[in-house]
Design a protein around this nucleic acid. Structure first.
Ligand SMILES: [Mn+2]
Ligand SMILES: [Mn+2]
Ligand SMILES: [Zn+2]
Ligand SMILES: [Zn+2]
Lengths: 137, 137
DNA sequence: TAAATCTTTGCAATCCAGTTGCAAGCATAT
DNA sequence: ATATGCTTGCAACTGGATTGCAAAGATTTA
């Protein structure tokens, strides 16, 4: 098994089971965020609930983060190595209304937002919608 | 029927049916965004699908906008009079992880975001999560 | 005014992603 | 080798969202 993979699992204190290795490898190949159904399609022989729980485990361990892109289907994408899913790690996401893909804009960090008095930000789900570079001509 | 109400309907070219008047009045009383189930609770004698379609109609007519706050249940809130639901009308929303309420931060407009080349923003769903003033002590 | 047409509503059924319970399989510790 | 705990597969359930259809209501046309 690949070194990068091993490291990702050990970094997050996760046992590298066969299923998890397959799913992590798949996630690493993606340039876009994926849904549970995407995963089901990619692994037709695997069980829905196993894939579901794998994603949830990954999310808890901060190996992936999830994105509510407004489609009603939660999307998942790999976190950066050093990610702790705290406010400073947050970035924008982009959902293309034409191709329906959701992208992590990992180098677009969320600015400080001047919230009303006594409101405290801990997390955020920031989704910009429009046309992606492929669909905008 | 109240003048403000009449105007809201005529502004958006909507017929003010009995059901719509009730729902609009209810929406005007809220300080927080509401879900379809909230509406069902408020109008137990009304039919779920009628309420559902009323919200959808209101949304299409830009009388309300919807918010994906990450709970999986779409929330709705009244638009401002002059709202056209375009990029310039967008504002942040706040979802409290303790009381689970979702607020429109109508005076916090979304800044321009420096998207990757050829990406074009048309809409956005920006949700800050954390503790609201009531829950943060 | 009466008939035709369009819109809205109520009811019931369906959809379907997400989620859970449980038993079997597998890995690790004693 | 046995016991314990974590992971997986299967099947069933959940609950909100959504749709089809016919009745009721509103508006237009003749
Ligand atoms: Mn991301
Ligand atoms: Mn709002
Ligand atoms: Zn696109
Ligand atoms: Zn709160």
């Amino acid at each position: 098994m690949n070194d990068t993979l091993v490291k990702k699992f050990s970094n997050r204190d996760l046992k590298p089971t066969a299923m998890r290795i397959l799913v992590l490898r798949f996630l690493m190949e993606q340039t876009k965020a994926i849904s549970l159904s995407d995963l089901e399609l990619a692994f037709e022989r695997a069980d829905k609930s196993t894939l579901f729980r794998t994603l949830k485990t990954f999310e808890q361990s901060k190996l992936v983060h999830s994105i509510e892109d407004g489609t009603g289907h939660l999307k998942y994408a790999l976190c950066l190595e050093e990610c702790n899913c705290s406010a400073v790690d947050l970035h924008y996401h982009f959902h293309c209304i034409k191709c329906k893909e959701t992208y992590c804009l990992t180098n677009l960090n969320i600015p400080t937002i001047d919230l009303p008095k006594n409101f405290e930000m801990q997390q955020a789900n920031m989704v910009v919608k429009g046309l992606c570079a492929n669909c905008n001509h």
